[in-house]
Design a binder for these strands. Structure first.
Lengths: 165, 165
DNA sequence: CCGGAAAAGGTGTATATGCTCGCATTTAGG
DNA sequence: CCTAAATGCGAGCATATACACCTTTTCCGG
């Protein structure tokens, strides 16, 4: 069975020359496309360490902050709370992080395990290689500019500070 | 049943003060975080049109290029071929795009349907609002700088031109 | 014309993300 | 002390994204 209902060429609609086909570049589309590209580079680099860039990022955030509640960690990472929970699943399964009940019975605290710290140490050299390659190919000044701009983009997030609740 | 094996607070490992907890900002992590933030803004904006930003982007690319083969479209979007196929699924299901057999029996051509063109027209005003808000809050010069930098980031993609096969 | 390499796609599997809804706990009022 | 609102999470569902592996078609050399 075909995944798509394939029909014979019947010209679905006129090619190109559509409203909105042009217009200035979509900031979000460009950002997403660049993210896919860069994620590939980093994922390829740290693959030998058995981690994805996203996982490495989470682990590093935890290393930096220490035990953190789910919702708080999600807020820091600008990640949906439930998405974060699921992103933690494979890390919990591999014993890289632990999730323990907080004082408030409603909360859960996420923390790095020893294996988690070890995983960071193991992946760090690979991450540094990727980061260094970006610096080498893009140049430190441009990278600094990019990071700064990304910071401003982040502040556009619905629910970012500076917006009446 | 709990999703996680919750244990009582037992201090999994020493908080913070881990190697790699600091280091310069991860370019990829920052890019991904900003992407989540901006995608929210755009998704919220075009939601009334019943599209996600990713879907709108795909439709626009198709409008610009006319019927395109799967692999070619994936290359243009810097998207994995199989990921693209699956991203098309909901659009095909809703009749916004059609997938027809190409001359070469191995290929499939993706094209916008009339409904697809209509969907773009319907979403365009919403997208423009989002884009305008970004321009207003960030400023056109910074946005131009950002777009230019993203272009350079894209060229870091493994498999980008300028790399011996 | 044949056989194998190359090209185009699909499927299965796994992670990444976000929404809606429902459950449990805590806290604010009265 | 009891109840309603607020808070913190998880589960189900759907899309987004990539990798490994397999099938079908072409293409090419002999």
């Amino acid at each position: 069975m075909d995944r798509f209902h394939v029909t014979m060429p019947s010209r679905a609609a006129s090619p190109a020359a559509s409203p909105g086909a042009s217009s200035p570049a979509c900031a979000c589309g460009r950002l997403r496309r660049a993210t896919r590209a860069l994620t590939q580079l980093y994922d390829d680099a740290i693959a030998p360490a058995g981690l994805h860039l996203t996982q490495f990022s989470l682990l590093r955030t935890l290393a930096l902050r220490g035990p953190t509640r789910i919702t708080e960690l999600a807020a820091v990472a600008l990640l949906d709370r439930t998405a974060l929970s699921r992103n933690l699943d494979p890390l919990v399964a591999r014993g890289l992080v632990t999730v323990v009940a907080g004082k408030d019975a409603r909360t859960r605290e996420v923390a790095l395990s020893r294996a988690g710290h070890a995983a960071i140490r193991a992946a760090l050299p690979h991450w540094k290689r990727a980061q260094a390659e970006v610096v080498r190919r893009l140049g430190a000044p441009k990278l600094d500019t990019l990071i700064a701009l990304l910071g401003e983009i982040e502040s556009l997030h619905p629910g970012a500070p500076g917006r009446a609740a």
